[in-house]
């Protein structure tokens, strides 16, 4: 399972990298969103072992093993942050388009020696 997920994340990273290298703002933003999906899955596999126990919620009187709770806490933080990043980037793209009339990053280059 871990190997499968890792390969999946590898593919996601490849796609994300390619999208980030393109010229369209929206594609770049999509790329970052996909990159964060990949990162979340990745962190998940780095814990104690997938599906190695039950849901990390204690139940009175039951001694059980749990899956690793730490990656979950990290990912929860990360999900919210990546949402904020996506929102900021989208709005930035929107405003840039409004002001400059283009969503092409190549055309958005600053002037040299300003």
């Amino acid at each position: 399972m871990e190997t499968l997920i890792t390969i999946l994340t590898g593919i996601l990273v490849t796609v994300a990298t390619y999208l980030i290298l393109t010229r369209s703002v929206l594609k770049v933003i999509l790329g970052t969103a996909i990159l964060s999906h990949a990162a979340h899955l990745m962190i998940m596999t780095m814990g104690k072992g997938l599906k190695s126990g039950s849901v990390p919620v204690l139940v009175d009187g039951q001694e059980t093993t749990f899956v690793d709770p730490l990656p979950q806490a990290l990912i929860l933080t990360s999900i919210v942050i990546s949402f904020a990043v996506t929102a900021i980037l989208l709005v930035l793209a929107y405003r840039t388009y409004r002001e400059t009339g283009t969503d092409n990053l190549y055309e958005l280059r600053g002037n040299k020696h300003e």
Partner: peptide, 24 residues
């Protein structure tokens, strides 16, 4: 992977982000 908190958050966040992307 036994992560109910994450699944809940991810679902809601994904929905809201999709709305955002559609606005874009």
């Amino acid at each position: 992977f036994r992560a109910p908190d994450l699944a809940l958050t991810q679902t809601v966040v994904e929905t809201v982000s999709t709305v955002l992307f559609l606005a874009a």
